[in-house]
Design a protein around this nucleic acid. Structure first.
Lengths: 126, 126
DNA sequence: GTACATGCAAAATTTTTGCAAAACA
DNA sequence: TGTTTTGCAAAAATTTTGCATGTAC
């Protein structure tokens, strides 16, 4: 995989945010600097980066979000607004306690799902 | 929410399998017993059951899977074929170690992602 | 009768793909 | 030149929604 300007921009955008963005958000930010970039390029690049272990994918509410921090670390996810927040930068989850049934492990997602403070105060809107 | 025949059937199907099926699989099995059931009903019912805490949703590879076991328990997920396998029926994940940032916790997903033994032996196909 | 749930089809959303043109080695 | 990547548009896949009809209390 070549390091193209498109790929570099996508990595930069992901590394510069802690918001765990989805492909559309990355695309919308990317075209501010490269107006002709296509959404397909964003999807293809994110998929490649994930396969290479450069970034981590978080599936939530039917949308793929991406994280430049590939350490194992737990996330808080809001089931109302879909927001994803880091709890810490790393967490030691000891796989030796488990029977991994022959799986070759690639990554671990620790997702703690709940309602964020903002959505708790907006109760009337539901 | 009323306990309709459709809802009962969907719960029965989900409780009778350990395969963590998606909406389409549940629908295809449901119409064997209720041929006129609509896919929309399956989606609506699964969403309601999840909101009520009766079942658990697992987002993986862009598809929503469902689990009748609502205990916190880790899953093995195959990044090639999408298969989801239980490691154990329950696991004590102690939230007291974390700063939950005001989130009201609803559920926890422990997802261990890797390549299953079957897909490891099918290397040529990629 | 009223309120809620369903079936069906259409629409919306997210993601993938085909292909010609462009960029790079 | 040959290979890889991009942009663009179309298509695919999954999920949601509107609405008329049906069902239950």
């Amino acid at each position: 995989m070549r390091m193209t300007p498109q790929r570099k921009l996508i990595i930069d955008i992901l590394k510069s945010t802690k918001s765990h963005p989805d492909a559309l958000w990355i695309y919308q930010n990317a075209i501010k600097k490269m107006p002709r970039m296509g959404l397909g390029t964003v999807y293809r690049t994110l998929e490649q980066l994930e396969r290479e272990g450069e970034i981590k994918r978080i599936d939530f509410k039917g949308i793929a979000h991406y994280d430049a921090n590939v350490n194992v670390h737990p996330h808080l996810l809001c089931s109302k607004c879909g927001k994803i927040v880091d709890i810490s930068d790393s967490y030691d989850f000891d796989l030796r306690n488990f029977d991994l049934k022959g799986f070759k492990i690639e990554s671990i997602n620790l997702d703690i799902i709940g309602i964020c403070p903002e959505c708790q105060s907006k109760k009337g809107e539901n």
